[in-house]
Design a protein around this nucleic acid. Structure first.
Lengths: 184, 184
DNA sequence: CCGCTCATGTAACTGGTTACATGATTTA
DNA sequence: TAAATCATGTAACCAGTTACATGAGCGG
């Protein structure tokens, strides 16, 4: 009954508009699209319906602010929306902390046994290379956000960095174990 | 055109049946339900349709093996299914490695700024406590799998463990930064 | 004037979710 | 015999996906 984001995307949309003060749905879309994390495509078919839902529940309010001839719907978070955002990040945070985040890499490696033993090392090797390249991008992203000022945005990027490092370390362990097994 | 799992859940179903040799859809469901990772509910409404799809595409085959009076559909992976599984874990693994895994905790903390400054420390504190408790369960799970023998199952549990440790470390960093900010 | 970006949407589809339903078998 | 578990499914719903459509404004 109380207005609460019903999906993480809704929470993100609400959060991004809150931290921008106000902006268009298109701006939200761009941010989601540009974020390194590939979870959400940031497609129009996801963002606009989400905005509509949030408006209908009174968590967002739009004001037509025509810049010149062109109409634009500037979105802002209502007081109820701010409250909803607070209960989304606050109380549900512990639940989120207990969850084991999904990792498609881990999911696939669970069944590496189906691949002929001779090819496993090469596969792990390539995954490691790709991951370590991505890690560099993540590092740069973190540094950029650190310099940008927003401590929570920086914190998020830092979290991504630590996660990616842990994954890389894990892949290294696996590669080593695989090589040991191969040489026996 | 080639038979490939169309979602990670399909891949998991195929993989679990492959590693079991053969089993019922119900057994798959139980395994998914019992897994620590809460990504998929393992609901009947997800598993049975997935099995049906995989059967239709020739990746799974069922043989009625009635035990006593009760009919049971024993599922097995076909050669095409094994091939599909291989291309799912193999070539797509590098793509998966580049992805930044989603983390609902990280997603929420991105907007911690909306919470009154005075409450942030307490929230982080509680999340840390919950996470560290979960970490113990993950540790036990890893040890159990290590003793069980399947090296890939162990590897997956190990990946979970490293990820959770990284998250805990991250939360500790955040708590420290938050306290520094609070005491200034 | 052509193409790019800004900006807002809709439509068809899909793969999940919860909840419900049913019946056999096992266990307390 | 009552309750739990095994086992298989269906139905309604929902929040994403891709792809399509439209139009204004702007830089080359």
């Amino acid at each position: 009954m109380p207005g609460v984001p019903r999906s993480d995307l809704e929470g993100i949309v609400l959060g991004l508009i809150w931290s921008a003060g106000r902006c268009t749905a298109y701006a939200v879309r761009r941010t989601v699209q540009r974020s390194l994390s590939a979870q959400w495509s940031g497609s129009a078919g996801a963002i606009y319906p989400a905005v509509t839902r949030l408006e209908k529940r009174g968590l967002l309010r739009a004001q037509k602010a025509a810049t010149g001839k062109r109409p634009s719907r500037q979105l802002a978070v209502t007081p109820a929306g701010r409250q909803a955002l607070r209960t989304w990040v606050g109380p549900s945070l512990s639940e989120a902390a207990a969850e084991i985040p999904v990792d498609p890499l881990r999911t696939r490696l669970r069944f590496l046994g189906v691949v002929p033993a001779g090819r496993r090392s090469a596969i792990l090797e390539e995954a490691r290379a790709v991951l370590s390249r991505q890690l560099e991008a993540v590092e740069r992203d973190w540094e950029a956000r650190r310099d940008a000022g927003d401590p929570f945005s920086e914190a998020m990027a830092r979290g991504v960095l630590l996660t990616m490092r842990a994954r890389l370390q894990w892949l290294d362990e696996l590669r080593e174990a695989q090589q040991r097994r191969g040489s026996r």
